[in-house]
Nucleic acid binder design. Structure first.
Length: 434
RNA sequence: GCGGGUGUAGCUCAGUUGGUUAGAGCGCCUGGUUGUGGUCUAGGAGGCCGUGGGUUCGAGACCCAUCACUCGCCCCA
């Protein structure tokens, strides 16, 4: 019986070419969020289990987290999400932090689930959060940041839409207009969440069943369907159109549009699975018909920091997973051809390993990333290795070069070869790199 | 947790109603002598056909079980 070379179920090995793609995405993410003043933080991959139990419920935690009892009998979990952790960190230093507080992180997260497309057991997720601002300006900025990331990755506006809704608005509908109790409105909310996955007639039947005959006579179900049909705030049912949540949404959309984000729309069916959202929620959807799915999203959750027994801190944020983002970039052909970090591959001709050391050191000191082939094989074999590594330049060093104090530098993509001194060689390679 | 699909060489896959020593392309290794790659060319290594049972004179093909991978559903961070 031999050992398996497969990575653990639902987790990925990142061979260098895979890691390059991930590094590219993270680089673009960092670039975009830092442009808005967000600072990177991190935290342990393990947290006390109750951190998640408090927020999501024991059952979900037992079924969907990797958890165990440590040697000190502590119940711990590998983090399935970052939001509880960052809320904990903010709560701990609540009084000494400077608000508005802008933080981001790219943690790897684990969830115990059956893997499927775009959804693995281990993934990385950019988390961006803005703490301490309760007004719509914060909601606007966080969506601008989400959009900026897409733009930094060269996505065009017709490749994605930003869909916006408000939990407060939905709550206004459920409680004030439709006078549903907590359980009923929760069920109806979950139904809306599944709306696009089911047959429309089936959806209508299920929704109708939520209302009593007398409520239907009063036209409450009609109000509900009218709500879902709205594509702008002005199309909302009369009773909702001018509530605070509606006017907030309208303002958010207006300012986003005036800041150049033309692909933002109101979508009353956006719910997000989580119960902790308190107001604005949004999702970024891929418009490609082949992959018309939610890529990532977020919203406002003003209650989480308060769970730690301190004054609540209003918060708005979002999470963006690496798997779905890579799917998006690949399907829209937005991933550039990525090269390794090595600038040149040194081919040693003959037994000159020792004599070549000073000149190799010079190349490195000049700022080049140099990989040396010390295998002692014939030059053709060494060149093949350079090609396989995907390195652009080969630099030949043999007795002749050492004697004449020159290098032979060859561009493997063109076959063009030059015999130059160290300084000139360095600038040839650097010119290509930039 | 429920349902579908697929397991044959390192990779992608063929393998005819069950019939001799199981194939291709790519990749890999060694040559085609001197310090230069992708081409060409000659050769070579590499498979208990996922695993365990069963049917049969005979199984990579058929049946059962099991495992793995995969795509959906449920759920969603």
């Amino acid at each position: 019986m031999s050992l398996s070379t497969q990575p653990y179920k639902g987790a990925r090995d990142f061979y260098p070419e895979d890691k390059r793609a991930q590094k590219y995405m993270f680089k673009m993410m960092r670039k975009a969020v830092e442009r808005f003043g967000y600072e990177e933080y991190d935290a342990p991959i393990i947290e006390p289990l109750e951190l998640y139990a408090a927020k999501s419920g024991q059952e979900i935690v037992d079924e969907q987290t990797y958890n165990f009892v440590d040697r000190g009998k502590r119940h711990v979990a590998i983090r399935p999400e970052m939001t509880p952790t960052v809320s904990r960190m903010v709560a701990a230093k609540r009084q000494e932090l400077a608000y508005p507080l802008r933080w981001y992180s790219i943690p790897n997260l684990w969830r115990y689930e059956r893997p499927q497309r775009g959804r693995l057991r281990e993934h990385w997720q950019l988390n961006v959060d803005l703490f301490g601002v309760s007004g719509v300006a914060a909601d606007i900025e966080i969506i601008q940041v989400a959009d900026a990331i897409m733009q930094t990755m060269n996505a065009k506006r017709d490749m994605y839409t930003i869909r916006l809704n408000s939990r407060k608005l939905v709550n206004e509908l459920m409680v004030t207009v439709l006078t549903l109790d907590k359980t009923e409105s929760y069920t109806l909310t979950k139904l809306i969440d599944r709306m696009h996955k089911m047959d429309y007639a089936e959806f209508v039947a299920s929704a109708d069943a939520m209302f009593s005959p007398s409520e239907r006579d009063a036209g409450k179900n009609d109000v509900f369907f009218a709500f879902l049909k709205a594509t702008t705030i002005d199309e909302l049912p009369e009773a909702l159109r001018s509530c605070q949540a509606a006017t907030d949404l309208k303002e958010i959309i207006r300012i986003l549009e005036s800041s150049g984000i033309s692909n933002v729309v109101f979508d009353p069916s956006i719910m997000r699975g989580f119960d902790y959202y308190t107001d604005t929620v949004f999702e970024v959807m891929d418009t490609d018909p082949e992959n018309n799915r939610s890529m990532f999203g977020g919203g406002r959750y003003d209650g989480l920091v308060g769970l730690f027994g301190v004054e609540p801190v209003p918060t708005v944020g979002f999470g963006m997973g690496d798997v779905t983002m890579q799917n998006f970039l690949e399907s829209h052909k937005l991933l550039p051809a990525l090269k390794p970090e090595s600038d040149a591959y040194v081919v040693l001709v003959g037994d000159v390993f020792e004599q070549a050391q000073p000149v190799i050191a010079k190349l490195r000191k000049a700022g080049l990333n140099i990989a040396v082939d010390m295998s002692g094989r014939k030059p053709d074999k060494q060149i093949k290795s350079a090609l396989k590594h995907g390195i652009q330049y080969v630099i030949f060093i043999g007795e002749n070069e050492l004697k004449d104090e020159v290098l032979v530098v060859k561009d493997l993509s063109t076959g063009h070869e030059e015999r130059r001194g160290v300084d000139r060689t360095v600038s040839i390679v650097k010119d290509y790199r930039t």
